[in-house]
Nucleic acid binder design. Structure first.
Length: 321
DNA sequence: AATCCGTGGCG
DNA sequence: TCGCCAAGGAT
């Protein structure tokens, strides 16, 4: 498949490029393991530019796992803002609680322990072990999958799901040296994020363009089955987002009427509300009111519920049904 | 294994 | 304009 010489060439090219071109991100170099952990969860399916300001705010408010664990989970959901997939905020809070209760208030340093935490899968466990603790792991994210698919498999895009072959390929390329391995993982990710992008790869700026199997094959177009996008308009995800936005932006409990303004369709609204409650993202109160979970223990209970706005928000800000 | 889960920017 | 995409995880 590949010779040791080819692998060594890849290593020196990529590591050299990374030393020159790497972004200075706040969770790189100098961040605590907790800071790295929070960044990795926030970065799951969310771009760096949107994560940065929220990450700073979280580090200011909750500099340690114990600090976050002491808060109501609803505060984590509120501070999550519009990063998307708010269950991640809940899982981050649960992970902080587990760190406090089972790991002496620290981020556990091994992949195996990290994997037991809520919201931590194979990628995040490897990434935290590598980037926070310098472990020699095999990190495989969407960037690395795409870079390796092109550079080594002559494919424009990787398969829909991670395959054994991909994992084996990624593992075979991780340098033996511990420090070099950690840098390798972040360097391949960075190449995928900045140069070897999904839409319009900047092959002219690529340090391994002359070694890239996809380029050498003439940059053939993707031939597999068409990649399915996710529906959005008229979905429960859209409605859940609209409902949670109302809760986030309100200081206290919210009436059902206020939620009805966000999602007019009653059947969908009630179904999504039930889902949010069973997910732990929303807490039902008496008399048809709702709030973010555990809000009452974070401070004095607000006296007055927020009523439905007299003037509806612009239609595009609401769930249209 | 296939689906579900948010949000916003860009080509 | 609109589909695609972004440091995935859980079921």
């Amino acid at each position: 498949m590949s010779t040791p010489h080819e692998a060594a060439q890849l290593h020196s090219r990529l590591l050299g490029w990374f030393a020159e071109a790497a972004r200075e991100l706040p969770w790189r170099g100098g961040a605590t393991p907790w800071g790295v952990f929070v960044s990795e969860v926030m970065l799951q399916q969310t771009p760096v530019v949107r994560v940065e300001p929220v990450w700073h705010e979280w580090m200011r408010r909750w500099p340690t796992p114990t600090a976050l664990a002491a808060e109501a989970p609803g505060e984590a959901v509120r501070a999550w803002g519009r990063l998307g997939y708010p269950r991640r905020a809940l899982r981050l809070h649960a992970a902080a609680t587990a760190m406090r209760d089972e790991h002496g208030g620290e981020v556990p340093p091994t992949e195996a322990e990290l994997l037991t935490l809520p919201g931590v899968g194979v990628y995040t466990a490897a990434a935290v072990a590598a980037f926070a603790f310098g472990e020699r792991t095999t990190v495989v994210d969407t960037n690395i999958r795409r870079v390796l698919a092109r550079a080594r498999s002559a494919q424009q895009y990787p398969a829909p799901a991670l395959t054994r072959a991909e994992l084996a390929l990624a593992a075979s390329l991780v340098p033996e040296d511990r420090e070099e391995a950690a840098t390798w993982n972040v360097a391949v990710m960075e190449l995928g994020a900045l140069v070897c992008t999904a839409r319009s790869p900047q092959c002219d700026a690529c340090p391994i363009a002359d070694l890239c199997a996809w380029r050498l094959a003439g940059s053939p177009a993707h031939d597999g089955p068409p990649r399915r996008g996710q529906a959005w308009h008229g979905t429960d995800r859209q409605a859940r987002g609209a409902l949670l936005a109302v809760l986030r932006e309100s200081d206290g409990p919210v009436t059902r009427a206020a939620l009805a303004a966000a999602v007019p369709d009653e059947v969908r609204r009630e179904r999504c509300l039930d889902g949010l409650v069973s997910d732990g993202l929303v807490e039902p109160l008496a008399r048809g009111r709702f709030q973010l979970p555990g809000a009452s223990q974070a401070g004095p209970a607000p006296e007055r519920a927020v009523e439905a706005p007299a003037v509806p928000e612009p239609a595009e800000a609401r769930y249209a049904g």
